[in-house]
Nucleic acid binder design. Structure first.
Lengths: 161, 161
DNA sequence: GCGCATTACTTGGCCGACCAAGGTAAAGTT
DNA sequence: AACTTTACCTTGGTCGGCCAAGTAATGCGC
């Protein structure tokens, strides 16, 4: 009676893929939680990854960003336009290649780094609450396996580094 | 050297939340994979859940759908409008309550049920390839725990059934 | 040097998903 | 019966994300 996993009864058409269903639900909840924590920093869910990369990488070509976050180029373009408008990012033409665009986190945005770091570890703790170290490691391991699986044949992960 | 989990180096700002990062990546890859499998059935990623519920539930109020898939009402409205346009769903005013709308999967869409079922189990297999039964059960268990955690305080799961 | 493929981004369109606000109808209160 | 609250959806706007197609510059082969 009270034994169903979490919140929802599984639709019968999804019986063949309970884990997939769980992944979808967890993904959405996780994204929402991340969004709430990141809202304080003025970031929308998804933008964190881009900024995290830029904070590490410094001034860099947009193509590098695209490779790093592994999103559609058009997605990155639009995200960067918005991040530029909101003052988190500076873009400038690459003098060495007139097609390319150099991207860089603004000094302003760097002030958010620690906020985002805190938010991210807080999210992790919220996500993994009640799991001991062994379980966390196991979950990380299993997710890594799953990620590998999903990369294969989907051909979304660069085979060539 | 070749020991990093999957495809990507973790940004330093995300060091405090490796599992969260993995969840995000897996979520996106999983959604993409689902989308590819479901494209054959004429469904966009996300619509599966709605249709799965309707196939089980028959003619039902829109508010029931909203509760079941646990999405924003406005999201459901728009999805249903599109699903109606594409012929997967029929909507009609509820004679018993003039605010409400009754929703129902069309006969046409029911023909897709088996396709979606197959797609979903195929997705599951693709996702969990190489994991033995114990690992699968463990992953399911851990995901359920995580889901519980994310429901708390986010107050997105109905406390009240 | 010239043409052609490749690379690098942009634009437009579409969908899922959110929030904020609005409008209507039912239910509850007095 | 009139008023207020609550439930049920819709509309409009914004974002992340995808695809398809387009533009512009570079690089490569010849």
């Amino acid at each position: 009676m009270t034994s169903d996993p979490a919140c929802t009864e599984l639709p019968s058409a999804a019986r063949g893929g309970p884990v997939s269903h769980a992944v979808s639900r967890v993904a959405r909840l996780h994204r929402i939680a991340a969004g709430k924590l990141l809202k304080g920093a003025g970031l929308y869910p998804g933008q964190e990854f881009l900024m995290m990369y830029l904070w590490d990488a410094g001034a860099v070509r947009q193509s590098e960003v695209i490779k790093a976050v592994d999103l559609d180029p058009s997605t990155v373009t639009k995200m960067l336009q918005r991040l530029e408008q909101s003052g988190h990012v500076r873009r400038s033409p690459d003098p060495a290649d007139r097609r390319a665009v150099l991207v860089e986190a603004t000094d302003n945005s760097c002030a958010l780094l620690s906020d985002v770091e805190r938010a991210w570890t807080s999210l992790e703790e919220h996500t993994l609450a009640g799991l001991d170290t062994g379980e966390r490691k196991e979950l990380a391991r299993l997710l890594a396996r799953v990620e590998e699986n999903l990369c294969r044949e989907t051909a979304d992960c660069p085979e060539n580094r």
